[in-house]
Design a protein around this nucleic acid. Structure first.
Lengths: 89, 89
DNA sequence: TCTTATACCGGTATTTGTATCACGGTCGAG
DNA sequence: CTCGACCGTGATACAAATACCGGTATAAGA
């Protein structure tokens, strides 16, 4: 294997990540936010549902901008669970 | 075409992005930083050289963590140039 | 009822990210 | 000079991200 087929943990992280985005979207429609972010609605849906667990940085940056989210907080919210325990001292 | 082959602008943005990372890396070696971030050195190199203009969010998050960078600042530094003028009010 | 809008889902096509392999360059030691 | 170690690089292989298409379900309104 050459690419590390995405561990289950990464997929779970993707789901949590998507949930955060969905929460932040609130009332607004997918099409609305996707258009503002400059991505397709399908892509946004896949990210929100966790079917695209590791989206590109700039895609997320655009979405975060469209949703008025902090990338740092977003990342922290997904890394906190158990990764921090392993990495940090 | 279904995937939008990355516009020249996106590639330039990738180069700027990579340059920022390389600058932030400073004295440290690629292998060092890559190991801390949990990615392969080759991947880091591609990102720094701009050959991977749109890396995954979590890869960047890990690198930013390894380099003590702010994701928000990182994103802002790459979006500022001319994109901000078009998007922001 | 019918239409419209939104969200979800499956499949498909293309491009890209990431990792491994193998090579060349540099530096210090022997 | 040869060896080993480290760094950076190019080529290659595979998995995934993004986008488009069609179809389905639900809810609101005419």
């Amino acid at each position: 294997m050459v690419r590390t087929p995405l561990t289950p943990w990464e997929r779970e992280r993707g789901e949590r990540f998507g949930a955060l985005l969905r929460e932040a979207r609130g009332e607004r429609s997918m099409v609305e936010v996707a258009a503002v972010a400059g991505v397709s609605a399908e892509t946004l849906r896949k990210i929100e549902t966790g079917r695209a667990p590791t989206p590109s940085f700039f895609t997320i940056a655009a979405l975060a901008f469209a949703l008025d989210l902090s990338l740092d907080e977003l990342a922290a919210a997904c890394v906190l669970p158990e990764d921090g325990a392993a990495l940090s001292a």
